[in-house]
Design a protein around this nucleic acid. Structure first.
Length: 410
DNA sequence: CGTCCACAGGAATGACGGGCGG
DNA sequence: CCGCCCGTCATTCCTGTGGACG
């Protein structure tokens, strides 16, 4: 299968072609650089707050706010890893555990994760949350340490699980004798306060730290620093650097975005055999990133979400209502011999597709003619054809044309 | 100005695949 | 093996509602 000489060309090109990168890893957003430009103030403040730990005292709980890509995670990891090595030097028994709540998913898994970090094994399911919490507390107390818990993207967890577990966690020190806990909460959402019990909030934000978005100039500096490490000299054009910063600055000053753009632009340029990364490569990168994001999202949809999306595709008009989509969906299910979900369920699937940006749904009232969601495809029809056209399950649904015309219920 | 459409979306509940400790 | 609890997905039942029509 395939033609070996084509592959040879690809490999030869890779080996012999112009190498633009020195070290690609430096541009990944989980890379932790030696210095974090424009965040000296935050580093200093956070350092001051956690310093008491070196004298075996518990440090204040800290709440960190800021939008994505403003350096919250990087600064926190930076400060804590330095703290940890200092602690070793001074013989203080400090340990920290970083948890991304959005990735971790549930309070059960957060506690399970914390426990594992202390060497207490927890099955990934089967216990009650209370039981896991108790084991965690027991394991912690017997460890005789100061434990700093970093809960990143805590807003995601609190919004869909509530803050009851946070209440438990903020009070844990009252029942510990040999260990102490400090919590660093990191939130992307500045309004998180409104979702929290005031008691939890006040205990959690003994200290507060706000990360402002970077402006275009600051982003430029960040990219410049990183590009020195990641690219060969003279490879990055000034205009490419500027456009990367400008695009990311327009998107709430997101450094992560800026780094992604730069890395992908480098890859695009390298693949084209260019010697210099230009503005055009950055624009191409912007397109590629978006394209990949959407394709990834499409491929990972569940059966019914796919059918719902295909229903929107088939209706093929500027906006369809929930009822219309349900009818088409109904038909597609029949065509595939799949069991069908209720309209209630379909509603939430549509909302999920909306938050993934595959579809745009907003509630509108049509007065006498009811109140519904107007749903519109947010991605190109040809892309859907590309992704599902050759699919063994969904391929034939692309060409299939539905019969029903929706006339409301009854 | 009230009615009433066509749903929105919250709450409670259930089915299911999994793992626990005893 | 049992009884119990978990998270996830889905259903059932429900109350709420913006605004064109009469």
């Amino acid at each position: 299968m395939g033609n070996p000489s084509v592959l040879d060309d690809v490999f030869d090109n890779f080996i012999n072609g112009v190498r633009l990168f020195k070290d690609r890893e430096v541009l990944r957003h989980d890379y932790l650089p030696e210095k974090l430009p424009h965040r000296e103030e935050q580093i200093r403040l956070l350092g001051q707050t956690v310093a008491p730990v070196l004298k075996d005292a518990r440090c204040s709980n800290i709440f960190i706010y800021g939008q994505t890509g403003t350096g919250k995670t990087a600064v926190t990891k930076y400060v804590l890893s330095h703290l940890e090595s200092k602690a070793k030097e001074y013989g203080a028994s400090v340990k920290f555990c970083y948890i991304n709540c959005r990735m971790t998913g549930s309070e059960y898994r957060v506690f399970a994760n914390l426990s594992q970090n202390l060497g207490v094994a927890i099955p990934f399911t089967g216990l009650s949350v209370g039981e896991v919490f108790d084991r965690f507390r027991a394991g912690l107390d017997s460890s005789r340490i100061i434990f700093i818990i970093v809960l990143d993207e805590i807003d995601a967890l609190i919004k869909d699980r509530g803050d009851a577990f946070m209440y438990e966690l903020t009070r844990i020190n009252e029942t510990l004798h040999k260990s102490k806990v400090s919590i660093i909460g990191i939130s992307n959402d500045l309004r998180l306060k409104e979702f929290l019990d005031p008691r939890v909030f006040s205990s959690l934000s003994e200290e507060e730290l706000v990360f402002r978005p970077y402006d275009a100039g600051e982003l430029r500096n960040i990219l410049l620093e990183r590009s020195k490490l990641s690219f060969q000299e003279g490879v990055l054009s000034d205009s490419a650097l500027s456009i990367c910063s400008a695009l990311a600055a327009a998107e709430h000053g997101d450094a992560r975005r800026a780094l992604d753009l730069l890395r992908v632009a480098g890859e695009v340029a390298e693949r084209q055999g260019a010697k210099v990364i230009t503005e055009e490569h950055v624009r191409q990168a912007e397109k590629n990133i978006e394209h990949n994001r959407v394709v990834e999202a499409l491929k990972n949809l569940t059966l019914h979400s796919t059918l719902v999306l295909l229903s929107v595709y088939h209706l093929n008009k500027s906006s369809a209502t929930t009822g219309e989509i349900y009818d088409v969906y109904n038909e597609l299910c029949g065509e595939l011999g799949a069991g069908l979900l209720t309209q209630r369920r379909l509603g939430t699937l549509v909302n999920e597709l909306d938050s993934m940006g595959l579809v745009n749904a907003k509630v509108v009232s049509m007065g006498r003619y009811g109140r519904t969601k107007k749903i519109r495809l947010e991605i190109s029809r040809s892309l859907i054809k590309d992704v599902f056209g050759g699919d063994s399950r969904f391929g034939r649904l692309i060409d299939y044309s539905p019969q029903v015309s929706h006339k409301g219920s009854k």
